[in-house]
């Protein structure tokens, strides 16, 4: 992935990296192929570049968090991904961490804004 040069883009990319994984896992409780997953995330306001999302699915699969298989259904052959058992457990833990972190961050940011 090409690192952006300006500080805002660089830091925003750092922020988004972890969120993208969680966002993808959240939509993979049901089977999705790459393009449909990107559409589903985009419809919820989470735009992820193709070059970031598609390789991410492979990496998550190689870590044992997703399982995949090729299937032909209403069109050309597509590779479908879904959470594995390990992935489902990890997703539950990550979601809890995200919610806790999100609450802390909201407090910190609101405190900072109030001062």
């Amino acid at each position: 992935m090409v690192e952006p040069a300006d500080p805002f883009s660089k830091l925003e990319l750092e922020l988004r990296r972890g969120a993208i994984v969680l966002a993808a896992l959240s939509q993979l409780r049901t089977e999705q192929y790459g393009y449909s997953l990107r559409q589903a995330l985009s419809a919820r306001g989470m735009e992820i570049e193709e070059g970031t999302l598609y390789p991410l699915l492979r990496r998550l699969e190689s870590q044992g968090l997703l399982t995949s298989h090729w299937r032909i259904q209403d069109g050309p052959p597509r590779r479908y991904y879904v959470l594995s058992e390990d992935g489902a457990r990890l997703y539950a833990r990550l979601s809890a961490s995200w919610n806790a972190l999100s609450g802390v961050m909201a407090d910190l940011i609101n405190d900072g804004a109030a001062e």
């Binding site: 090409v2 393009y35 070059g51 050309p76 052959p77």
Partner: peptide, 30 residues
């Protein structure tokens, strides 16, 4: 398969042209 699907979506039902394909691949990166 994924890039073909992306390209078809960008073409909006019409036959995709090389310019659209170039833009798609440029977005995917080196």
């Amino acid at each position: 398969a994924l890039l073909t699907e992306e390209l078809d979506a960008r073409a909006g039902g019409a036959a995709p042209d090389p310019e659209t394909a170039r833009a798609l691949l440029a977005g995917f990166g080196d």
